[in-house]
Design a binder for these strands. Structure first.
Length: 467
DNA sequence: GTGCCTTTGAAGGTA
DNA sequence: TACCTTCAAAGGCAC
């Protein structure tokens, strides 16, 4: 795995990514020859897919040669670093002025809490500081707010494990944040959009510091490889997730989150946003007091609860009521979903498409054109997402969400051949399987003869075999 | 107003 | 173990 530097201890438990790549016929341990042949294979695959997009002016360099260029991120790195430094400086001043936290204690701690982020947000263009993660109205003056920071953002001694310098990303790939984003949303922060519901402010329990809201004792045993702590340097620090797991800030029961959602969620909001430094080198400063974890969605469950009540409140048992109280905890996003969230705005801008079905097809093809390094970034993000999710919701299971949605109709499309069923993961050219509905929607993009894919640029011939 | 479409990946269930 | 199903995001569209 390219992003896995074996030395830093940074990427423990990356097996999922290995599996993911292996699933695509790529093995982590390969000889140079194998790598070469693999590259050839990838190039073939890439060239096939890129036929649709190479004709654009923007993809001149995205040729089927032996090198693929990173598609979007590198140009953004400088601006990102500048902004990061600016924010870091602002935070240092904030720390110095407010004395809210000691650098020695929180250095490298991805979560910083300041009493009033509004002041910080007023620092000129810092209004965009948390922007990818800031929902309008989330910040309010006087609200104690967490600032989410990623390790490289702070000058942390002993962060050698942060990243292998050979890594494609100087800090960590997951720290990159696409600059081309809508200012009001983050491609990697579904957390902020999951639920507008707020939970009542709660008072931190006595065992937590009144100033920081953090527990006084660390949980070194629960340190995540993604938030490495140097034993000698900052080993005394509380792991960002440590206090979340064992002694939740606002009291996640030891057995899990289920029995007391609101309390747990109040904590989860800040934690999720913070640990969901996931993917953000900036900050994710949702109010500590109210915004639940992104994975918590209220609408669906509310709807269900409403329906359930309509069916007869008398029949609702206590257990059912507890069920109704359950917030809908969404699944963590997988690598491709993260990729889509990041890239969708770009595709929309490039292709002037808005319909997600078509965009997703384009993105699905672009996904396959990504190099391993590029994909590994998203696998890494997804792994963090899952780790965070599992720690935020220890008792959650994907099965909990089964049936929350209406069952998808599967008879709408022609069945694939019985033998060797073509699934969405191994289908032929996607345009071949464009539903009549989608084609109809894009009739203006479908030349009547060619029946083309609504791609940005030159479409792939329908007969083009695809991996 | 609700579900479908469309993608990949993760996870749970089943044979 | 292999295969199948469901869900995660997104927004236009059809009903």
């Amino acid at each position: 795995m390219p992003q896995l530097d074996g030395g830093g201890g940074d990427d423990l438990g990356a097996n999922d990514e290995l599996i993911s790549f292996k699933d695509e016929g790529e093995q982590e341990e390969k000889t140079a020859e194998n790598v070469s042949s693999e590259r050839d294979l990838d190039d073939v695959k890439s060239s096939l897919v890129n036929e649709t997009e190479n004709n654009s002016s923007s993809s001149d360099s995205e040729q089927a040669g032996s090198h693929r260029r990173p598609q979007h991120h590198i140009p953004d790195w400088e601006s990102y670093v500048r902004q990061r430094e600016f924010v870091a400086e602002a935070l240092r001043r904030q720390q110095h002025d407010s004395g809210m936290f000691k650098a020695s204690l929180y250095a490298g701690y991805p979560l910083l809490m300041i009493p009033d982020l509004g002041n910080l947000a007023n620092l000129g263009h810092l209004g965009n500081l948390g922007n990818p993660y800031l929902s309008p109205g989330v910040l309010s003056p006087g609200t104690r707010t967490y600032l989410q920071m990623k390790w490289p953002m702070l000058d942390v001694p002993g962060t050698s494990a942060l990243k292998d310098p050979r890594s494609p990303s100087p800090a960590h790939m997951s720290n990159k944040v696409p600059v081309v984003q809508h200012s009001h949303l983050s491609p990697f922060s579904p957390l902020l959009s999951y639920s507008p519901d707020r939970f009542p402010p709660q008072t931190p329990p006595p065992h937590l510091s009144a100033d920081t809201g953090l527990p006084p004792t660390p949980h070194p045993a629960e340190l995540s490889p993604y938030y490495p702590l140097s034993p000698g340097g900052i080993g005394h620090m509380t792991h960002p997730l440590g206090w979340l797991q064992g002694q939740s800030m606002y009291g996640i029961p030891a057995g899990g989150f289920r029995p007391s959602y609101p309390a747990a969620l109040a904590m989860n909001s800040s934690m999720s946003s913070f640990v969901s430094s996931r993917f953000s080198p900036h900050m994710v400063p949702p109010p500590q007091t109210s915004v639940p974890h992104s994975a918590i969605v209220s609408t669906a469950i509310k709807q269900e609860a409403r329906d359930s009540n309509q069916h007869g409140r008398c029949a609702v048992s206590m257990g059912d009521r507890e069920e109704e109280k359950k917030p809908h905890v969404k699944k963590p996003l997988n690598a491709f979903m993260l990729y889509m969230k990041e890239q969708r705005p770009k595709v929309v801008a490039e292709c002037t498409l808005k319909e997600s079905a078509a965009i997703n097809q384009i993105l699905g093809r672009r996904w396959h054109t990504l190099s391993r390094e590029e994909q590994s970034k998203y696998y890494d993000m997804a792994r963090k997402e899952r780790q965070l999710h599992s720690q935020l919701y220890p008792g959650w299971s994907a099965r909990d969400n089964y049936g929350k949605r209406k069952k998808r109709k599967r008879d709408g499309r022609p069945e694939t051949a019985p033998e060797g069923q073509i699934t969405h993961t191994q289908s032929a050219a996607p345009e071949e399987h464009f539903s009549p509905q989608l084609k109809k929607s894009y009739s203006h993009l479908y030349p009547p003869i060619n029946d083309e894919l609504p791609s940005c640029h030159a479409p792939v011939p329908a007969s083009l075999p695809r991996h």
